[in-house]
Design a protein around this nucleic acid. Sequence first.
DNA 1: CGTCTATTTGAATGTACTCAAAAGCGGTGG
DNA 2: CCACCGCTTTTGAGTACATTCAAATAGACG
Lengths: 191, 191
Amino acid sequence: MFRTILSNFSLHVSLSSQEKEIAVQALQSKLIPKRSFLVRPGEIQREIYFVVSGSMRMFYPEESGQEYNICLYPENWWACDVVSFFNQKPSLNTIQALEDTQVYYYTFSALEALFITVPKFERFFRILSQNGFEMYQKRIISDHSKTAEERYLDFRKLYPGLEQRISQKHIASFIGITPVFLSMMRKAKNL
Amino acid sequence: MFRTILSNFSLHVSLSSQEKEIAVQALQSKLIPKRSFLVRPGEIQREIYFVVSGSMRMFYPEESGQEYNICLYPENWWACDVVSFFNQKPSLNTIQALEDTQVYYYTFSALEALFITVPKFERFFRILSQNGFEMYQKRIISDHSKTAEERYLDFRKLYPGLEQRISQKHIASFIGITPVFLSMMRKAKNL
DNA sequence: CGTCTATTTGAATGTACTCAAAAGCGGTGG
DNA sequence: CCACCGCTTTTGAGTACATTCAAATAGACG
């Protein structure tokens, strides 16, 4: 049952079976219906989610009503406004389920407790944050150096198969183009 | 002498005079000549720099020879490839002085020692990282939502006065446009 | 089935880029 | 200290990439 999350932990730390047990005990789980929200601007992110199935997005809702997808979270991704969660300060963003989504999650306080009992997890989540940091740095470079087509292909490499599960407008928003242009491009280039 | 760095610390942590003393003792300082390099791709970032005067840039050097400025660091900024430094893994980027630059710095091991004697500094540098994280997230949204002109004005707000000290091609690279277009835009709009 | 949203299509437009050449500026050596 | 060389910025013309607006079509959901 906890196979996927345990193998995710093992990407960065190696755990004894006892440590695995402790980590798993502290987890909670829930099903998030499509279109429902986990965090909204002004709220503090109090939980960090591991996506078992389904997918979510984090977006910045501009005053104009425009939404900018910052990150997509399919299976095996950790979904969370990292800045809000680790500083327990209000989020600027919204996290929303794009499909019915099954998650495991730690509350902030459960995670604090886990850090004390099994300090390795501090390392794990530090690496997780740093990977996010690196991913965003690369996105900036990619936005400055690549065409929409290249960014679309990068999206498909980063999130294999996801393009068949979520609407094109969310993909367009993620790569920073209009849905209209994504549609034209896909047709013109047979993508 | 350490006024600027101490007031920088006090943005996020409050320190006793003894703690200040310890922090300052662990600092080293050096002068980095214009155009010289602090980190190069493949090297591990072993020091974290506080800019006292002058300025530096971090850029990603593409195979093609093209360079993409990821961040600019004038006075009172901490300059460092965060990912390389905190994980002590090879950097992908280059850090270079844009002017003769005076810095204070901690080596990685000096900082580790400081974290043990004055744990508050762990908090300080965690907040520093998270601020970087947040800044990059905002850059992505900005790249997806704003025009070159708006991004140029944002640049000038973020780095007051810096536009008179560094070459336009570095500004253009930072905001993700060509130097030619920056020049045209500044003329057309009297910026 | 009907409504609402998402996608497609087309035409016109705008923003930013490329290429090329000229002008400006800064550092270096004679 | 001046002259020259190399790099940066400017200027102009032509082009490409991506957007907007609008209307038609297709899909999803109650």
